[in-house]
Amino acid sequence: MEGLEHILTEHPFFAGFSAEHSQLVAGCARNHRFNAGEYLFREGGPANEFFLIRHGRVALEIVSPGQTPIVFETLGEGQIVGASWLVPPYRWMSDARAVALTRAIGVDAACLRNKCETDHHLGYEMMKRFLPILVQRLDATRLQLLDVYGKR
């Protein structure tokens, strides 16, 4: 467990986290290894974990029947995969596939949500870290939707 706690404190997402909070999160965390092509999660499945990528690359995909999957974002080292664990009904809204061998820390969502309910300071620290990510991804999505490189 000490090893995981150390890894978490080194991860950019947890920069500035107190030792007490790092310990609480580490208590919900475990190591994962995904081979290239393996899925971290599938659309519609329970969002019972989120992932901090330590190494590798993950593609977020949407599939439309009869068409090949569309990759709309890739995430790499130091980034977070998954925000659906924050919002009921806690179901994934896309597929996440490892493009290359990927090592990640998975954080159990139910475990962490319970700790956040008990310790609102921890909950606030988590929200302060997740909200900028959500805003950045919303901004990026806007830019993608504009199709700025297309012919006008």
């Binding site: 593609a59 977020l60 995909e61 090949t68 999957p69 990759v71 709309f72 790499g76 596939r97 993608q144």
Partner: peptide
């Protein structure tokens, strides 16, 4: 790239 299919192994995003 803004969008890609699964054959693309590079970055996707802005």
């Amino acid at each position: 790239v803004d969008h890609a299919d699964a054959d693309w192994h590079g970055n996707v995003g802005v």
